[in-house]
Nucleic acid binder design. Structure first.
Length: 407
RNA sequence: GGACGGGUGGGUGAGUGGCUAAAACCAGCAGACUGUAAAUCUGCCGCUCCUUGCGGGCUACGGAGGUUCGAAUCCUCCCCCGUCCA
């Protein structure tokens, strides 16, 4: 790593952030680190509530990586204990708690994916069950004694739930306090989180002080808006792009975002510097650059980060081929079939899991969403001959293609 | 512990005995138009069977019973949520 001045570090770290609480403290910490040669301890806490991560999560992980690249200690904290409580942030109702087993399973897969971004060798991975799991109830009570109910209820999600007569479970109040203890246990200098984590992170700062430590700097990153262009990207809303998804899938999804949203993706998911993004935007506005081309460049860039340059290129070519030139995809997933009795198309679609039910299959066919080798099939009663070896391309809906091979 | 209000399809939410697989809106899906964008328009949107028909069967309005020819709607008990009181 190249040695950088404090000012250079600060400028670099500020890129894309929503808020730094407080910036002067961050500067002071960087100065002290430069002086003493002791790297800052920077952590990102994540609850493994879902088994895999999507682009929305990568915004904060990238920021952690920036610290890592500057030689600071990146700590990836897996909230295996707190996940069993569930973060009430932004939640309009109490979540069902996860079981120990689910959490462990999720954490494992999660971590593999995180290493696509962070340097495996240099990352300190911790689990908060390490300390929270062993905490005597006396200490929990003492911890709770450091915070007031009124302040807790200032939170937007609690307040609005109270207003709407929706339930709040008592254990949800404990979430910010327990995760605050993470900061204490880690003796952290900086915590990174999404803007929606701001409240929690402020509590963390307070509690650190109560335990005689200096408050960490809270650095928030903007929330990535999902594919629908309105709500935050999340698995449960289904408007997400998983980072393990196939390049082809990713490309298709990225291209389906609105033109407006593309710019925020440029900002939060690429390494392009601000001036570059501004220039692209200007070129699109003046008609020099077609918006679709700008979007393709975005998709290419993001996919290259996860799957490599080669794969990104292939995905882009495939996209052009299928959707701009309306040709059959060069590579559709193959499915082999044993020879057998003729089968109704609807039954076949169901069997191939292209549709969730038979009714849905019939609907799709009637509406003209099914093609065989580019020929639309609207006859529900159409039977597919499976008696002799053959091969055809089946399309169900806009994006689903399967190459069927009868052997 | 008491009084009152509430629990309807993925979401919001109408419906107080048959005309209700359940209004309306949102989300979703398909088609048209495009740049697989957005917007717009049209249609679909519980499951299943076949002779694919304004067809048959099954399941569905917190849970379990009951009244009735017939219940999301009425009764009983239970569970859950909220408000106020203690």
């Amino acid at each position: 790593m190249i040695k950088r001045t404090v000012q250079e570090q600060l400028t670099y770290l500020k890129k894309g952030v929503a808020e730094i609480i407080r910036e002067d403290e961050l500067k002071a910490k960087l100065e002290k680190s430069a002086r003493t040669g002791k790297p800052l301890r920077v952590y990102l806490g994540v609850d493994p509530t879902a088994p895999d991560i999507h682009l929305g999560h990568t915004v904060v992980i990238h920021k952690l990586k920036h610290f890592q690249m500057l030689g600071h200690t990146a700590i990836f904290l897996i909230g295996d204990f707190s996940a069993m409580i569930g973060d009430p942030t932004g939640v309009s109702e109490t979540r069902p708690p996860l079981t120990r087993q689910q959490v462990e399973q999720n954490a494992k897969t999660y971590l593999d994916q995180v290493y696509k971004i962070l340097d495996r060798e240099k990352t300190e991975v911790r689990y908060n069950s390490e300390w929270l799991g062993k905490m005597p109830s006396y200490d929990v009570v003492r911890l709770c004694g450091h915070y007031r109910l009124a302040r807790m209820l200032e939170r937007e999600d609690f307040r609005s739930r109270l207003d709407k007569n929706q339930p709040i479970s008592v254990h949800e109040l404990l979430y910010p306090l327990l995760t605050a203890y993470d900061a204490v246990a880690l003796e952290s200098d900086v915590e990174i989180g999404a803007t929606e984590q701001k409240f929690n992170m402020l509590v963390h700062r307070d509690i650190q002080r109560e335990y005689g430590q200096s408050s960490q700097v809270a650095l928030t990153m903007p929330i990535l808006v999902g594919l629908d262009g309105e709500r935050k990207m999340s698995k449960s809303l289904g408007n997400y792009i998983g980072i393990t998804e196939a390049p082809r899938e990713m490309f298709g999804k990225l291209m389906s975002i609105s033109d407006e949203l593309m710019w925020s993706y440029y900002e939060l998911l690429t390494d392009f510097a601000w001036p570059v993004i501004i220039r692209l935007r200007e070129e699109v506005r003046t008609g020099v650059l077609h918006p679709m081309d700008a979007k393709m460049q975005l998709a290419h860039n993001i996919i290259a980060g996860f799957h490599g340059e080669e794969a990104a290129k292939k995905a882009a070519d495939e996209f052009r081929r299928v959707f701009r030139e309306r040709q059959a995809p060069a590579e559709a997933p193959r499915r082999n079939f044993r020879r057998g009795q003729p089968k109704r198309l609807a039954a076949l679609l169901l069997e191939l899991k292209l549709v969730p039910s038979r009714s849905e299959a019939e609907r799709l066919i009637k509406q003209g969403g099914v093609e065989i080798d580019g020929q639309r099939v609207e006859d529900v009663k159409r039977e597919i001959d499976l008696s002799k070896p053959a091969e055809f391309l089946l399309r169900a809906g806009k994006k689903k293609f399967l190459r069927i091979v009868i052997e």
